[in-house]
Design a protein around this nucleic acid. Structure first.
Lengths: 208, 208
DNA sequence: GTCTATATTTTGATAGAC
DNA sequence: GTCTATCAAAATATAGAC
């Protein structure tokens, strides 16, 4: 992975300005989060990256290829953030709670979930793939944690790990929607507290 | 409200073609659902409504005013649909289940929730207001149903109706997100089944 | 590799005929 | 009220100099 000829990846010797390609990807990540795919113009990307028009079309064939790189990056970052919460210490409940309660910029919404509302993204198999992969992984990973909790006797055997995992993931995504509609983080917090309380009722008395 | 001079509202004598204004609103509702605010051009609206450009700017000052009419209409329709489920027969659990399990075009997403992902909508107090009102009402209405269930002894007293209501609403909105990412309704159904199972654990043995 | 023209199409709206 | 020009700006690329 680290050959001077092949690698155009980051060589982070101190804090130098990232390369053009890297700046283009990061700017696109930000803009896709804020405005979505249709709402993000090449011009806006160039201006934010402080790069000329030619540079963009040198590194990428166009808007969609650049968006793909940005979406992949965002999905990967989100996956790592979630993994840190779900692999932390404590019981299964603790780890799911850590995921639900982790710090978030609630009113900005989820940068991955945001993309599911974009026609051009979900209608393109290649652009949708990173979203599918990320949320599929997330639901699977939460289900694993819940199933592990059951094996350890922490959680009621009657709980369906797959359904429970989908519920947890949906509460977060739906919480963003409710919060943005209200321009207030309260509905997000309420939704999280609600599902945590329901989950707490599944914790076996011995292990709680 | 029904004076021949003032009223330009629907006069539904059999199934005649709706008026120009009405067709513009309906077309806009559809397009906002499919493409969002940024993705919906006046031209697309006109073509779908089969109306000339001048007609649109005669009835509305521009895109945003037309969008406001469409968003208000959609929010109102959504409210009535939800109300029918939540006011139905049966226990509190039954009514919440009726809301969660009602027929939906899952992969199309929620036409109201969709709008929360549109920068121009949430940043405009007047365009966001119908979303806020609708989701605020929904959470309040579900909370009422849950609280009523508690008073009747159907649901555990420990349940927080406000938090539980936010969770139920979030599961639906988040379910849409997960389903669209997967291009498959299964995650939506799993999330709904998950929260219903958790809620069923709050049903008191006597009343279940 | 990066930049500055240039080009085509679409957007969102206005003007004015009928 | 509805229609067909017309328009300035933006979106999305391409061309070609450096």
């Amino acid at each position: 992975m680290y050959s001077p000829i092949v690698s155009t990846q980051k060589r982070p010797s101190r804090q130098e300005r990232p390369g053009t390609r890297e700046r283009l990807v990061r700017s696109t990540q930000e803009l896709l989060w804020e405005r979505g795919y249709v709402g993000t113009s090449p011009k806006a990307i160039l201006e934010r990256a402080d790069v000329g028009q030619g540079s963009m079309y040198h590194h990428f064939t166009g808007k969609s290829e650049l968006a793909l790189a940005a979406i992949r990056r965002t999905a990967e970052e989100m996956k790592q953030t979630a993994e840190e919460c779900l692999t932390g210490p404590g019981t299964a409940y603790d780890r799911v709670a850590a995921y639900l309660l982790r710090e978030r910029e609630v009113l900005r919404g989820c940068p991955v979930g945001r993309m599911t509302q974009d026609r051009d993204v979900v209608h393109s198999p290649v652009l949708r793939q990173p979203l599918d992969e990320m949320f599929g992984w997330l639901r699977g990973r939460i289900a694993e944690v819940l199933a592990e909790g059951q094996r350890r006797g922490e959680l009621a055997a009657g709980l369906d790990p797959v359904a429970g995992a989908a519920t947890v993931a949906a509460v977060v995504q739906g919480g963003y929607v409710l919060a943005r509609a209200a321009d207030d983080t309260a509905p997000f917090d309420a939704a999280v507290q609600g599902v945590l309380a329901l989950l707490a009722a599944q914790v076996t008395p011995a292990a709680g």
